[in-house]
Design a protein around this nucleic acid. Structure first.
Lengths: 251, 251
DNA sequence: CGCAGAATTGATACATCTCAAGCTGGGTGG
DNA sequence: CCACCCAGCTTGAGATGTATCAATTCTGCG
């Protein structure tokens, strides 16, 4: 990937066998023959931080997996109010088989590489072999659960609880991606600006900033620079998030 | 508990061919042989308005379709704050294949009839034939879209917009279930108490009440009794909801 | 008839938003 | 190499929308 310049630079063509998301993405369950069919129709696209992948309402003739980097799904109201409705990390899936146009703005929040499949051939694979559809169902059910957790956050949590929840969510997803197990202090780099956090949480960015400062004052988190966060006691953070304390470390 | 009228009496065992949700539920795409397999493992359960179907965390060894009536999925925080995360109308699906315990409280909001399948045999059908899984994926993707719309409502809409949105959503789902096309004034019966509405919208029930009164004062809606609503101008309601005005009548 | 659950309405409190000013760090061009 | 600039962020003061607490008022039903 030659970066500096713009986006859709053709990236290295990875062999699926070497793919970092091979065992988590929509292709996770594929047999060799299915994988070969996907390999034939896949292509990579790269985006720089800040670039828009597609606009809501635009024609979208591919579906894709996030290979590396972070993307967001956002809805916008006519007067400009914005709500993030999806936060996509590596292995997450973008797009909906059977749909012509994008339903949300998709934005690269960091430098981003996606493994894309033209929609029509991908749909053919889904119809003729079982494992892609099965895995996609599983992933969609997981996303639905996450969305419902998110709805609780948006509808009922206080600003402080929202911030604590977001930090905990990111820490957990991070750990799960890297198969880390927690051990004492947890360290995270926020992949979002304060504004993106406010769009995730249904707050203003001023409130986000204030509540982060408050959590720092109270010793729940420590901050270095703007984005680098240390969580000395993860359970304490989870308490602040107002979540049931079970605290399974994976989402 | 056989009640004067409707509910928990062991219901008639419907023939799938005569089932009112045959063409919309998870079985919609089934071939004759698949339908026969489902028919063998299905059983009906009825609940009275107000009854709990399962509690979050309880073992749940079935999945089900709502045949008639209305159910809700709700999450509860330790201190009692509650957020509805699903509103289930006839043909909607409850439960998650592959999951042992219920993730949410499921409550019958009206008298309710569900068509249940024991989980294990249902999963077998999903593995050995394609159409149930395909339909379930489609339905889950629809629910995810609905959840994301809901997130916008919870995160960014004002109380007035939330109320207007909810009325519009119910009117649309209602129309879609009955294949009605709008014509002039739209009439709906709210299937929810003010409290349930407040749990849907992330508001208090007092605010719900006040905003309904305000919409009535402003002529956006007319009310007869507590629940019966007439919408003289549906587009006007949609404007109040803050939604993009496209107004496709189906969700 | 009278009760109980559901809904409305009022007065006040408070969390978050809004508007505004200032800070910080990293990049850039003179 | 420094001054400048700008996006991202922080902090403050005041406005406002919704929650909270507290009475009433409806309404259907035994």
């Amino acid at each position: 990937m030659y970066k500096t310049s713009a986006a859709p630079a053709k990236t290295v063509h990875l062999n699926c066998g070497d793919c970092p998301i091979r065992h988590r993405a929509v292709c996770a369950r594929c047999e060799d023959d299915e994988l070969r069919r996907l390999e034939e129709i896949k292509y990579y696209r790269s985006f720089e931080a800040g670039q828009t992948v597609v606009w809501s309402g635009d024609r979208m003739d591919f579906v894709a997996s996030v290979v590396s980097g972070i993307a967001t799904l956002t809805q916008t109201m006519e007067d400009g109010r914005r709500q993030m409705v999806g936060l996509l990390l590596p292995s997450d899936f973008v797009g909906r088989p059977g749909r012509e146009t994008a339903a949300y703005d998709v934005t690269a929040t960091s430098d981003l590489v996606m493994c894309c499949f033209r929609k029509k051939p991908f749909e053919d694979v889904m119809l003729t072999t079982p494992h892609v559809g099965q895995r996609l169902l599983e992933m969609t059910l997981d996303e639905l659960d996450a969305a419902r957790e998110w709805m609780l956050l948006l509808g009922r949590k206080t600003a402080r609880e929202k911030i604590a929840s977001l930090i905990a969510i990111i820490a957990r997803r991070d750990a799960s991606l890297n198969n880390q197990r927690e051990a004492g202090a947890v360290v995270v780099d926020l992949p979002l600006t304060r504004e993106a956090m406010s769009e995730y949480l249904g707050l203003t960015l001023e409130t986000v900033s204030r509540q982060i400062s408050a959590l720092r004052r109270d010793g729940i988190i420590e901050i270095e620079g703007k984005r680098h966060i240390t969580i000395p006691d993860f359970d304490r953070l989870v308490e602040e998030a107002g979540d049931d304390a079970d605290g399974g470390f994976l989402v």
